[in-house]
Each structure stands twice: as C-alpha cells, then as structure tokens.
Design a protein around this nucleic acid. Structure first.
Ligand code: FES
Ligand code: FES
Lengths: 142, 142
DNA sequence: ATAATAACGGATAATTTTGTCTTAAATTAA
DNA sequence: TTAATTTAAGACAAAATTATCCGTTATTAT
C-alpha cells in the first residue's frame, strides 16, 4: 500500500473536484463521495484537512460545495504530503529511523532512485491536468 | 509507507538470520530483536508467520533459534508477500478496487511500470545474497 | 426575516495494526 | 531424569486508522 486510505480518497476527491471546477461548478460532499465511492462523513474529514491547507476551497450554504481556485497550481504530491506526509518519498523502505547514504539499509542504494521516480510521478501533473479527461471516461475514480 | 511495520521487521530479521546462518549459527529471538531494534514479542509473532510459510526454520530448546535452510532460495519478495500480500505490486495506487488496463485510474499507466520496477527490486536478490556483507558493516539493520 | 442548505468541529465508535504477557510444548545439557 | 532454554500459541492491551453521528455556523434562496 503506497498511500493511506485517507490519502487515496483525498486524491480521487481532488481530481473530481477539479473536474467540476473545470465546468464552473462546485461539488458538494454527497456528490463527491458518490463519484469516487467513498464513505461520506470520512471523506468530509479528509477534505477538511485539504481545505485547511488551502489545497481546495469551499463555500457553505445552498449551492455551496468544494472547488479548486487554481487547479493547475495544485499537484498530486501536494495532496499526498498534506495527508500522509513526505515518508513515501524519503523514509527508509525497511523502516530504519534514518535513511541516508552514510547509514544505509541493504536496499537503500536501489530504493532511493525508485523513490525519486515515485516523487517525479506525483509531481509531474497538476490535479487540473490530471482531471482534464474525466468527462470523456478515459479513466475512473471508483 | 511501502511496507507495514510487521513486514519491515520481517525483512530486517530475515537478513540478520541469513547472516547468522552464513556463519553456521542460529539466532534466538532476543538476539534478533536486539540486532534490528524491534520489540521482542512482536517480532516473535512475525517470525512465527515466516516459519509457518517455510521461509525460515526454527528449533526449540537450548542452542535453538532461527535459521534459514537455503538462504539463496528465499527472496525479499517472498517475505513481503508472506506478510503484506501482493498489493504493493498489483493494487491500484489510488485505491480502486480493481486495477486493470481496461478500467484504469488516472495514474494507472504511469504507476504500472513503477510497480513492476518495485517488484524487480524485491525479486533480484535472495536474503542470502542481501545479507552477504552484513558483518562488514556496509549497511545497517537498525 | 425565515427556512433550507452545506461545510465545520467535536465526540464517539469500529476496525486494524502494533505490541505485551503468560502458559504450553519441545529440545538439549547435565 | 531433571532442569534450563527457547519457540509456539493464545489471550489480552494499546495505539493508529478508518468510519459515523450530531450540533453549530455560515450562506443562500425565498
Ligand atoms: S536507509 Fe533504507 S532506504 Fe535509505
Ligand atoms: S487502476 Fe490505479 S494503478 Fe491501475
């Protein structure tokens, strides 16, 4: 498991919100949970965190919901860091407290570049770009 | 976090056991937990699982302990699969129930090759080979 | 103004993971 | 044979993650 469940929901939700934002609409929590197949209340909690960290925005009341101010400025890696922290990209694969070239675990030299690739992967596209083809059903969120 | 804590302990312990096996000795649980910096009882449970699945062997009583019958035949991927299952190498990064080319998530096409690399990494060396330089302190297990 | 709507915040609960402890069973050494 | 040692197995406990619920607050439409 690369990501926690919370983080998986966060990413899928963000992409859906970006897709709605692209068509000038806001997405409320029921719609989001339905679109990505996640538990409503729990997803709300996760989105609260993203909202606090300014990765998404929200408005209350009728016709309110979540949206993203600048979908091209928010990257998947930002979501991951907001929910799971930076461990996926920096922590030792074998669980050593520190991961460094001078005190490596047996897998360090091989894992390090792989982690870098992982970081590249999560950094190369914004949620805006990632969500671009959502309405064409070229990929799925649930 | 790529691996569960249980799995991290399992890998570190296996490598240590292999290093002891290489010098014709068995390793008891206290020694192992001390060598890899893990909680004794919990580590015992993890090793029990590896023992059940025949990845390591054990003998009880004085001068007993754990060892590995053929360290060159046990690969890190075997340990991972025994403890965490195959998810790391096959599950959807975004948490979709199924991961397939025909029903991909937005990251599928980029993540798939990365997972393959991960599998290669965990498959390319046996615990025996991996543990070879342990006594030279070229790497660390805690 | 009022009522309806939807996010926010806090409390609580269920589940999974991680960790501990105790007794039993097996093996060995004396 | 006896006592010491070490894994096996099960129950139990703590902590973290995942999930639900409810009252509050802000916003909008009527
Ligand atoms: S020390 Fe283990 S990955 Fe760097
Ligand atoms: S469907 Fe998400 S990684 Fe394959």
């Amino acid at each position: 498991m690369l990501l926690s469940k919370s983080c998986e929901y966060a990413i899928r939700a963000s992409i859906y919100i970006a897709a709605k934002t692209a068509v000038k609409k806001r997405a409320d929590i029921r719609e989001i949970a339905d679109a990505i197949g996640s538990p409503i209340s729990f997803t709300a909690k996760v989105l609260q965190k993203l909202s606090c960290k300014q990765l998404i925005s929200s408005v209350r009341g009728p016709n309110g919901g979540y949206y993203i101010k600048d979908p091209l400025a928010v990257y998947l890696v930002d979501i991951v860091r907001a929910i799971d922290g930076n461990d996926l990209f920096s922590a030792c694969a074998m669980g050593l407290q520190t991961c460094s070239d001078t005190k490596p675990c047996p897998m360090h030299h091989d894992i390090k570049p792989l982690r870098a690739q992982l970081l590249t992967e999560f950094s190369k596209a914004s949620v805006g770009e990632t969500s671009a083809d959502y309405w064409l059903e070229k990929y799925f969120l649930k």
